[in-house]
Each structure stands twice: as structure tokens, then as C-alpha cells.
């Protein structure tokens, strides 16, 4: 088989990797790769994606090409998902050449996210807003905002050094509980539980567990179970983190 098709398979898997690494659903990844490969004349395109891996196998004239991509890092960047999705649609419609696809893909992947200060502002807003939604008063929201302001740089630092998710969330949970307890000691607000859970909404994998149930109901059993496991592991890490702070403070005071 000519190398053009190998190139195409590699590129479509790169698009799939970009989708998956930025938080797209596995069925979207499978569909995108499958559609591109069929649009370019493959007789059969079988794609299997779970949050940690993509396997694609295409065949034409009795010959088969297969490629595997391992995914180790995941975060959420919805703008990138949206752009990659549009790109894969355009590829199917207009049959771009591989060099054009490569250039477009590079353009999307090099696009910067919001600056750090704005992301911190978002983090703080989430903490304060959820504290109010859970029934906290204005002072509790203020304490949660402070809590978010301290936690975001810590999380960012841990991510930059590529610590594993489990450890990063233990530290995140511990820091949040520590700041919330300190805020209540200083008399800012007595609603410690609400401050902690409000700020924790930034870390807890609520979307992951919902998507995992969606995958399981839709029949993507392995993908769903993978996500469910990830959600439970992150939940455990956060619980260990906050528990750690509580027991140390309880011991000291």
C-alpha cells in the first residue's frame, strides 16, 4: 500500500489524539477517524477508542493498515474540541491533501488557552458561585474565593511538573481544607463545609462520572468503566487530601 494512506491514517489518529487529550467523548473520536478514512476511499475502517488508547485499522484491496496511539494526559479544552471537530468535517467534505491537513492541525494545536490570571479568575468564580448555590452566605463565598485563589497556582505548578493525577488531587484537597479552616479560625466565615465543597467543585470529576454512565448506557462499556474508575480514583485522592488536613488540625488543636 502506498505511503499516502499511511500518512493519512497517522494524521487522522493525530486528530483523534487531539480530541481525546482535550476531553472529547470516545464515540466522537471513533466517528471522526472512521469518517475521514472512509471519505478517502477505505473499504473498511474499524476504530476503537477508550480514554487511554486509540486503535484504528483500515483496509483496502485486501491490505490492512493498523495504528495504535497511547493517551496519557488529559485535560479539558472545549474550544480545541470544537475546532478539531470542524476540521475533521471539512476534511471529509473537501478532501484536503495531507500537507494541508497537517498545517491546519498544527494551527489548532498551537492555539493558546486563556492566560493564567483569567483561568485563576474562572477558578475563583466557580468556588464562590458554588458556595452560594449550596446555601452559603456572602462571607462564605468570599472565603471560598480566597481558597480558590490559593489553590489554583498550586494545582497549576503540580500539573506543570507532570505529577500524577492522584498525588495532585491529594495536595489540592489538603490545601483547600487548610485554607478553609484558616479562614474560619480568622473569623471570616463559619461555614467551613460549604467553603470546602464549593472550592472542591473545581477538582471533583462530576463530568467524568456523568459521561461514564452515558457511555455505559450507550454500550461503550470499556470506555465507561475506564472513566468511572478515573472518577473514583480522583474522588479518593481529594478525600484523602482533605482528611489529611482535618486529622493534622484535629491533632494540633
Amino acid at each position: 500500500m502506498i505511503s499516502e494512506q499511511e500518512n493519512l491514517l497517522a494524521l487522522s489518529l493525530n486528530i483523534g489524539r487531539g480530541l481525546l487529550e482535550n476531553g472529547a467523548e470516545t464515540y466522537r473520536v471513533e466517528e471522526s477517524i472512521g469518517r475521514i478514512m472512509t471519505a478517502y476511499g477505505m473499504e473498511q475502517a474499524e476504530v476503537f477508542a477508550i480514554p487511554t488508547c486509540i486503535i484504528a485499522s483500515v483496509s483496502r484491496d485486501g491490505q490492512t493498515l493498523t495504528r495504535v496511539e497511547r493517551i496519557t494526559q488529559r485535560r479539558t479544552n472545549l474550544d480545541r474540541i470544537s475546532r478539531l471537530n470542524n476540521l475533521s468535517r471539512e476534511i471529509c467534505d473537501r478532501k484536503y491533501s495531507t500537507s494541508v491537513i497537517k498545517a491546519e492541525l498544527n494551527k489548532i494545536m498551537s492555539q493558546q488557552a486563556y492566560p493564567f490570571w483569567l483561568q485563576t479568575a474562572g477558578f475563583v468564580l466557580v468556588a464562590a458561585a458554588f458556595t452560594i448555590m449550596f446555601g452559603g452566605d456572602f462571607r462564605a463565598a468570599l472565603a471560598a474565593a480566597l481558597c480558590g485563589l490559593v489553590t489554583k497556582p498550586v494545582i497549576e505548578l503540580l500539573q506543570r511538573y507532570q505529577t500524577n493525577v492522584f498525588f495532585a488531587n491529594i495536595i489540592g484537597g489538603a490545601v483547600i481544607a487548610a485554607v478553609a479552616l484558616a479562614a474560619s479560625r480568622l473569623g471570616l466565615s463559619g461555614q467551613v463545609d460549604l467553603i470546602i465543597i464549593g472550592t472542591l467543585m473545581n477538582l471533583v470529576p462530576g463530568v467524568a462520572i456523568t459521561n461514564s454512565m452515558r457511555d455505559i448506557i450507550a454500550g461503550d462499556l470499556v470506555a465507561g468503566l475506564t472513566k468511572l474508575t478515573e472518577a473514583l480514583i480522583i474522588g479518593t485522592a481529594i478525600a484523602i487530601g482533605t482528611g489529611f488536613t482535618f486529622s493534622i488540625v484535629g491533632y494540633l488543636l
Binding site: N85, G206, V207, I209, T210, G235, A239
Partner: peptide, 28 residues
């Protein structure tokens, strides 16, 4: 734009993030 962009963000107030946290706190 893909539905996901809206779904992920709009569902956030409803997703049981707190539930997972409390579950695992009881576990620990």
C-alpha cells in the same frame, strides 16, 4: 458548534461532584 461544548458546561451545576467527594470521604 458541537453539542458537547454546551452540554459539558451547562450540566456542571447538576453533576454529582460533591457526591463523589462525600462518598470517598466515608470510604477513607
Amino acid at each position: 458548534t458541537p453539542v458537547t461544548a454546551y452540554l459539558v458546561v451547562s450540566l456542571l451545576p447538576l453533576v454529582p461532584g460533591g457526591g463523589i467527594y462525600y462518598t470517598m470521604r466515608y470510604f477513607v
